[in-house]
Amino acid sequence: MLTTAHIDRVVAAALAEDAPWGDATGEAFLPADAHAAAQLTAREAGVLAGIDVAGAAFRLTDPSIQVTARAADGDSFTAGQVLAEIEGPARAVLQAERIALNFAQRMSGIATLTRAFVDAVEGTGARITDTRKTTPGLRALERHAVRCGGGVNHRFSLSDGVMAKDNHLAVLRSQGLDLTEAIRTARERLGHMTRLEVEVDRIDQIEPVLAGGVDVIMLDNFSLADLERGVEIVGGRAIVEASGNVTLETVGDIARTGVDVISSGALTHSVRSLDLGLDATVSAAR
């Protein structure tokens, strides 16, 4: 999903936003021939994501900058650990610094939080997945970070799968349409490679949805007791996904109800960026 071409498009836009007419400070204070050596260093422990994205910020600013990664995406790291080394023209290195850090800090924050969710459900068989609650324009980067943390990705976009949510079902009800028949009709329109998921928020909706022939049923905002009951009713006839107000404190109990998948928007929409820093030394031209 995260190709070099996609990285370059996103990073180039960020660089253009940050320095549309160059870096006025660097040009005013730094000699044109000054050289910088820098280290991308962790200020706290976490899981790395976005090392290639950070590298692209330097590469696209000046191709002569050399970036040497000392850790890979998905690696755990400790406070004080050097994650990458950067060398090149001082003006270019410092111009790219903030964009490189912004991406690496946010992506590593997502990977670190995802790893905590994954660890919390260890041994249950439940998988942790993200949602479409991502930063506009940054979905591919943020979802890559989820995978770096050990999670899996939900549908990437509205084009990638059929997922009928509460508002879709409300439209059906307003039209007096039968839920089971509506699902069967939708199934007939779909190709054999397309999965069909339906969200329910009440126990009594489960059987009519299953009768329509779904692949995945989402139990939204169910209590723990109702999740257990829902899993029992489904009885392996569909993949069971739990969603709604999933937190690091609750995810373990949710997993132990027997659901197959737990989706959480918090992985991307409420994450704290990790504290990473760039320690640079500027010297005369080499």
Rank of each mutant, 00 (worst) to 15 (best):
V259W: 08
H168E: 11
E122W: 05
I183T: 09
A36Q: 01
D201S: 07
I217P: 04
A100G: 03
A170D: 14
H35A: 05
H6V: 14
L267T: 05
D279H: 09
T185S: 15
F29Q: 08
V47S: 02
A280K: 04
V282P: 00
S159D: 15
G277C: 10
P89L: 04
N153S: 09
G191C: 01
R59Q: 11
V216K: 03
G80A: 06
L158Y: 05
I86C: 10
A266N: 09
R173F: 07
S283H: 11
L179Q: 13
G123F: 12
T114L: 09
A56M: 06
F103Q: 00
E27K: 06
S273I: 01
Q95K: 12
V282C: 03
V198W: 09
V171N: 07
I203R: 13
S243T: 10
A255E: 06
T247E: 12
I65D: 10
L248W: 05
A69K: 08
I86Y: 11
L172R: 09
A266F: 04
T78A: 14
G55K: 01
S108V: 04
S223P: 12
L141Q: 01
I110H: 04
S174E: 14
G88L: 00
G230T: 10
V246I: 15
A238K: 11
E142M: 15
L94S: 09
G235C: 07
G277F: 07
A5Y: 01
G22H: 05
A36H: 02
G265L: 02
E122A: 15
T4V: 09
L158A: 07
D226A: 13
S273T: 08
T61P: 05
I7E: 03
G88M: 00
A45G: 12
T180L: 14
R256E: 13
I110D: 08
L196Y: 07
E232T: 14
H168K: 10
G151E: 02
F103W: 10
A28E: 02
T3P: 08
L210M: 06
V198Y: 04
D279R: 11
P136A: 06
A32N: 06
A34D: 10
G149T: 03
E181G: 09
A69L: 12
E207T: 15
F77Y: 14
I65S: 08
A54R: 02
P63V: 03
E207S: 06
R272S: 15
V214A: 03
A71T: 10
N167R: 04
A38H: 09
V198G: 01
V259L: 13
A72M: 10
V11C: 07
M193V: 13
R187L: 13
R195P: 02
L210C: 04
V67D: 05
I65P: 09
A71S: 10
I110P: 01
I51T: 13
D62C: 07
D130T: 06
K133Y: 04
K165E: 08
N153K: 08
D160A: 13
A100R: 00
A90T: 07
E207M: 11
V282F: 00
D18K: 02
G258V: 11
I110L: 10
L227M: 15
T129D: 00
R256Y: 11
L267E: 10
A280S: 15
V146Y: 00
E188N: 14
R202N: 11
A242H: 08
D130K: 02
A71K: 09
A12M: 07
L94Y: 01
R147M: 13
D204S: 14
T185A: 15
V47T: 14
L169T: 12
S64I: 00
L48H: 05
H6Q: 14
G252C: 05
G55T: 11
